[in-house]
Design a protein around this nucleic acid. Structure first.
Lengths: 263, 263
DNA sequence: CGTCACTGTTCCATTAGTGAAACGACAGTT
DNA sequence: AACTGTCGTTTCACTAATGGAACAGTGACG
């Protein structure tokens, strides 16, 4: 599911570090615990090295092992990095009140996400008051090509960058509308670029509509995306491209302006 | 502030991995960005190795570098680990509704924390509705010796374990009531053990009262702690050792029972 | 405008981390 | 019980990661 740790074709890579981090990124989703041999097979590393890497990770509390001494799970040291990173993101702090206002104005759930390789990660959210709270928690990851927020984070990339990101592995289909070829994705991105925002037509999840807009940092580069989401039944096409679109775009550019002021 | 990456006296440690993770744990609090030489000095590593470690971390998006190519900040890959870890904690899922009920019953903010070395980390919380929301966010870290939740997570340790944890570095004082010697801490722990819960007398933050109780996993080992907090003015000594104590203890044992059922 | 200190990057001999083989321990199978 | 497979752990020869020295590029300072 998640991207396997790609060692990447860099000249100055420290294998031990890359492999150790590779172990950590094995965990995720349903995979909550591994044995040493399982890890060795998954990463095709020698048994003995996995043993030493695990010893190192364990001694620093990045992983823990059960009483049976065989199964390893993630450890609390990971929270150090993860939350320090969230706290370091100025944009989350800046966006918080604006997202809240967007939620209150539209009555819909508002979210903010950043891109990590081929995925987007939710970093802030305000669930709609009325309906059932959106099940999207902070930290949730979705494929970038299949979500409009994802497309917002890549819609100013040139062909070379896009090829580097999506050229290797095929684009996974989630709904009939999901773009599965680089050409189809580029067509959508061109449309997004022209509009400056995007409206979801169930590219990722059927029955869920959304409007997303890009957030730019001080240099003008797209740094994140925000959106509002609703179930299809509760929203009409007119409003999406009208007042709702304006609300999202305004919120996005307001966040961008605050970010520019910071740098 | 945060514990520097302790290589620990293990026989099978992979330095490159430990040092790379050491770089990541340099970040935190006010330290949002570092240059390569700064890192080299902080960890007393050769310039050339820091360079390669950073290249590796960067290629995997654990760190990013600014446009000036000099300053490094944390990267989005860290969210992978951090949130996968939170999601892997069954106890958070189990505790959520019980903490919410505890908050509603008592009218106070309820929290849950786990221990990471000498610190506790907040992993769940329900802020009080009435008063100003508690400023303690998920991921927040406090010293274990100076908080009653911290003491709950260590109050069944024997002398050897305590010495290993707290013997090296001195205990920092936060208020006049904070235990600053191992002896003083042990006295408090003995008291905690006798009672089975703890009441804060401003050990960490002046003006804030709290009641904490331990949560045990399937094996009976203390795995976490929960508490409720309030400002002193809003609470009287009687209630703290009476009904309030019972509510917290009941919630804690309820969570423990659910955890036992899982294993 | 040269000097100096400091940076990011590269090279290369040397050492330190590595992987295959091997050990004892355990569990399942015949 | 002996056999087979797999596990965690240890050892050791040898390969690969390492750290010092050296390079070029930057900005500071007199």
């Amino acid at each position: 599911m998640t991207d396997t740790a790609a060692p990447s074709e860099n000249r100055y890579i420290v294998p031990a570090l890359a492999q150790g981090l590779g172990i950590l990124s094995l965990f995720g989703g349903e995979n909550r615990s591994f044995t040493a041999p399982e890890i060795a097979k998954a990463l095709s590393l020698p048994r003995t090295k996995v043993f030493r890497l695990l010893q190192t990770l364990q001694s620093m509390d990045y992983v823990r092992c059960d009483e049976d001494k065989r199964h390893f799970t993630l450890g609390p040291a990971l929270l150090r990095g993860g939350f320090e990173y969230l706290a370091s993101l100025d944009m989350v702090e800046v966006a918080q009140p604006i997202l809240q206002r967007l939620r209150d104005e539209t009555g819909l759930s508002s979210h903010m996400a950043i891109r990590d390789k081929r995925e987007i990660v939710y970093v802030a959210r305000f669930p709609a008051r009325s309906t059932i709270a959106s099940s999207v928690n902070i930290g949730t990851r979705f494929p970038a090509h299949a979500t409009i927020m994802g497309r917002m984070t890549i819609f100013e990339m040139d062909d070379k960058e896009l090829a580097a990101l999506f050229g290797k592995e095929p684009l996974v289909r989630f709904t009939p509308q999901t773009p599965v070829s680089l050409k189809a994705l580029k067509a959508l991105l061109a449309q997004d670029r022209a509009r400056g925002y995007a409206v979801s037509q169930a590219f990722f999840e059927a029955g869920v509509s959304a409007i997303a807009a890009p957030v730019r940092d001080g240099t003008g580069k797209v740094a994140a995306a925000i959106n509002v989401t609703a179930v299809n039944a509760h929203i009409d096409e007119q409003a999406m491209h009208g007042a709702l679109k304006d609300a999202v775009l305004n919120a996005a550019s307001e966040i961008s302006r605050w970010l520019a002021r910071k740098s």
